[in-house]
Write a protein that binds this DNA or RNA. Structure first.
Lengths: 109, 109
DNA sequence: AACATTTATCGTAATATTGCGATATTAAAA
DNA sequence: TTTTAATATCGCAATATTACGATAAATGTT
């Protein structure tokens, strides 16, 4: 026990959980927001922006990348990370749909 | 080590991470979807819908509740859970905003 | 009152995450 | 080619999550 029972859920549910989980840590939210703020998809000076050590940031970036929320391009010495718009659209659509279904039904509680 | 360094991030970032984290498990995504599908905010027959034992489901419900994603009303013997619309709106707005900022900038990668 | 039903909590084992120092890897710069 | 800079990976300790059996708590039913 201890491991998530992924097999029992739909691909859609697992996919949504993966995206949400990746954003389920304030450092990773901060990274996303930083990538958004800095006009181009500025590189690994993310480390300077965050109160975390370089290996820790690197690990968080990896998780965001694995979840498909960001992309990384090698640019010589440096790596250029940026947000993957598609993933954000998936999230946006999911919650938009949820919201509009909710508005149609009058919730009891 | 091992504990998230919450203090170092903004309230907004922590709040978003909390909501996302709560949805970061397929069982909890499934619970949300079930609550949405069943017209009223049907009670704990969620257990029958999920491939998990009752205590496990109860724990997941607690986490969704702590994050503010659902509300629970005691109805005699039973408890009536339903989605908290406000939390979903927060999520919807967050990703909508993110999306529109992204559309304005042309991403490099 | 005794029993059944529904949900929560406790305790615990298995596993995952978080954070970081040390170290490897890679490519630019000197 | 040696040095420097930017990232990634390894290994480990601390902590958190997941799952569930056993049991408690609360309320309805008989």
């Amino acid at each position: 026990m201890g491991a998530t029972k992924t097999e029992h859920f739909t691909d859609q549910q697992n996919q949504m959980a993966t995206l949400a989980k990746a954003l389920g840590h304030p450092a990773r939210v901060a990274i996303m927001e930083h990538l958004l703020k800095v006009n181009a998809c500025i590189c690994g000076d993310i480390v300077n922006e965050l109160p975390l050590a370089q290996p820790t940031v690197s690990q968080h970036l990896k998780e965001l990348k694995n979840a498909g929320l960001i992309k990384g391009n090698i640019e010589g010495n440096t790596i250029c990370y940026c947000i993957d718009e598609k993933a954000i659209q998936v999230l946006k659509n999911y919650f938009s749909d949820l919201c509009s279904v909710l508005e149609q039904k009058n919730n009891c509680c």
